[in-house]
Design a protein around this nucleic acid. Structure first.
Lengths: 107, 107
DNA sequence: ATTGACTATATCCGTTGCGGATATATATTG
DNA sequence: CAATATATATCCGCAACGGATATAGTCAAT
């Protein structure tokens, strides 16, 4: 119910959350730290953006709740759809970045 | 007055408009076509996004009105600030894309 | 002991920005 | 001469962003 393939381009927030979750379950605060690290400190994601996005991503079937050993932490993990979507968006982004670099004269 | 350096990350719309204007003055409709081409058809920018963004970008000093030979067309061009901002955002995007590709196992 | 900093989850809500619908007009093509 | 493409522009609902805020546990320091 209600899992029509998510439209590309993804929003930057959704992309960064997917990237942070690749290969590892993480809880909310951990995602924030990872996004910061992945972006080289350029993206600062607040709790509003994080939890709002996570809700929408669960709704869209991109992520799911993981195993919660610790009742105080809520873990999130990528679904198969989340992984393929992340790959597609990464490819798209890489192509756009390449076009831009060529245009600017750094092939 | 009111030209404090624009914050990175740029919105995708602003980035694509800057990219479309690099090296060439263009009018609105032309920008739309160029964005479509640059993004390999993945980004469809409607008039609302285009003109709304252009207004904000003029306000922010990223673009300026160009020479209008034709009174029916309004040309836009990059300012110096627009060019440096485009370079900075392109670099940032390239880095993020690289991190993502490494993570996904396509270095 | 208690202050402060950090970890951690979560909601609320004002603002921004996106983007489709719409209007208008000219040029071009069948 | 009707339809399609070019071209500019506004309006406005809606989704998303992101800061403020609330709550609470941990840990180090003084």
């Amino acid at each position: 119910m209600s899992k029509p393939k998510p439209p590309l381009p993804l929003t930057p927030a959704v992309f960064h959350i997917l990237l942070a979750l690749f290969g590892k379950e993480r809880h909310g605060y951990d995602i924030m730290q990872q996004v910061k690290a992945d972006s080289g400190d350029t993206v600062k994601m607040g709790p509003g953006t994080l939890y709002g996005s996570l809700d929408r991503m669960i709704e869209a079937g991109l992520v799911a709740r993981g195993n919660m050993q610790d009742p105080r932490r809520i873990y999130y993990r990528l679904t198969a759809l989340g992984q393929t979507t992340l790959r597609a968006e990464t490819d798209r982004l890489s192509r756009v970045a390449l076009v831009a670099r060529r245009q600017l004269g750094r092939a």
